[in-house]
């Protein structure tokens, strides 16, 4: 090949990022089997995303727990710690992300958690913009088994829905057995899906987290004009 073309050097640009918040209900009712399944699911998600070289660099995960209070979990380099809800610290690229082991306690202030998660995503976008990093539409995955317990959860749900209407975020909600799906349906535009019960369908959590991972891989490699084909949902009672 021409030596002149060999002399070409390439611009060194940061990868575009896809910010993702996993909003997980860690209230008392999730203790035992459900939370064990969530913890295994997070492990699976972390492993799967690392296998995908593009997703590993482009997907940035934050874990927000909602059990008694709302906090973010920083889980990287062998350490898991609760940290303040700060967009500069809460996100880890998928290749840095290590699955935390969550414990359950308290009630379910889902309204506050939803508001905090949305703020994290907005702040993260602002950081990308200030650093000249391209980004994909943020994703918020909500998983809960109950009923929001804070007073003004409906206002928070409406704020999230409005943000989704403005294309500011994509919300996917999943109700674990016992969840109030009607309440959950107010968070975002899409109908929540009911995860198959653990007793009848032991692999359901695993399948759900595998679906999350495949969906994020699809986004991470999307180019302008791509309509993202999400993988089929086989972990829920209702087909979408």
């Amino acid at each position: 090949m021409s030596t002149m073309l060999d002399q070409m050097e390439f611009a060194d640009n940061p990868e575009p990022r896809c910010p993702v918040v996993l909003l997980l209900d860690t209230s008392g009712s999730m203790s035992g089997k459900p939370l064990q399944e969530v913890n295994q699911g997070l492990q699976l998600l972390s492993n799967d995303l690392r296998q995908d070289t593009l997703a590993a660099l482009r997907v940035e995960l934050a874990v927000v727990t909602c059990g008694g209070d709302v906090s973010a979990m920083r889980c990287t380099q062998g350490r898991t710690e609760r940290i303040p809800l700060d967009a500069a610290q809460a996100f880890m690229t998928a290749d840095q992300f290590e699955a935390p082991t969550l414990t359950a306690s308290g009630d379910t202030p889902l309204g506050r958690a939803s508001r905090d998660a949305l703020q994290l995503l907005r702040d993260r976008k602002a950081i990308y913009r200030s650093q000249g990093v391209d980004y994909f539409r943020p994703w918020l995955f909500i998983m809960t088994d109950g009923q929001p317990t804070d007073r003004d959860w409906e206002t928070a749900a409406e704020e999230l829905r409005a943000e989704e209407q403005r294309k500011g975020v994509l919300v996917f909600s999943v109700g674990v057995e016992g969840a109030n799906l009607n309440a959950l349906s107010k968070f975002g535009e899409r109908q929540p899906l009911a995860l198959k019960s653990i007793s009848s369908s032991p692999g359901a959590f695993r399948e759900y987290f595998s679906w999350v991972s495949k969906s994020l891989s699809a986004i991470a490699q999307s180019r302008p004009g791509d309509q993202i084909a999400l993988p089929p949902v086989d972990w829920a009672n209702v087909q979408v």
Partner: peptide, 11 residues
Amino acid sequence: QKGEYANETQF
């Protein structure tokens, strides 16, 4: 011509 997001453009 980009939209807000990395995978958006005009046609």
